[in-house]
Amino acid sequence: MISIRGLTKSFNGTAVLDGIDLDIAPGERVVIIGPSGTGKSTLLRCLNFLDHPDAGRITIGEVTLDAARATRAEILALRRRSAFVFQNYALFANKTAKENIMEALVTVQGRPKAEAEARALEVLAETGLADKADSYPASLSGGQQQRVGIGRAMAIGAELMLFDEPTSALDPEWVGEVLDLMRRVAARHQTMLIVTHEMQFAREIADRVIFMHGGKIVEEGAPEQIFGAPKDERLQRFLKRLTH
């Protein structure tokens, strides 16, 4: 169970998250859409404490914290409950594909190296990159790097996977393979919170779509409802602009 209550965050006095309330059920796939600069990335980053929220409560599984007075230990515990897939992949540049996946298992979870390596190879096979196990990120294509990035997040076994526009930095030719991999992750009932501009994909994969505007959740519902019968005028305008 994931629960967010009254999450706020401002940068230099400007509210970027303006009281976000959100519950996500286990296995649920939630897609966030909305215009640029409305705080979608900031929401994801706050859930992972890459940005520190000003206030609010966050619960991921057994970890609950009060953002305003979170201790260092609580922050680490929260981060270990979720896995982040970055727009720019953010693979560890000094580590091979395999080592990128092993890193969290060995260093953070303290699993034996041999076990972590077996798990990493398994995940690489699932991402279709078994032959790239010993390649460094610099020698991989964008699509391959992002698949390793998703593999790194899969291997952790986190309760929540956060995707911040995982295909936006990719050349069009690589988008398909990354979306395919995300479909496979979804098929395993992984709880996912996804920010994307791929509306077709959102419609297909989401159990629920959230429309954010000005740091708030303005409208949410099933994809058919959000895309087929949007109520809020700002959402209607946003969707209209996309189809043009």
Binding site: L76, R79, Y89, A104, R152
Partner: peptide, 12 residues
């Protein structure tokens, strides 16, 4: 991005 990736997996 390297700092953030390290933090995101819960490293100290």
């Amino acid at each position: 991005s390297q700092w953030e990736a390290a933090q995101s997996i819960g490293m100290t």
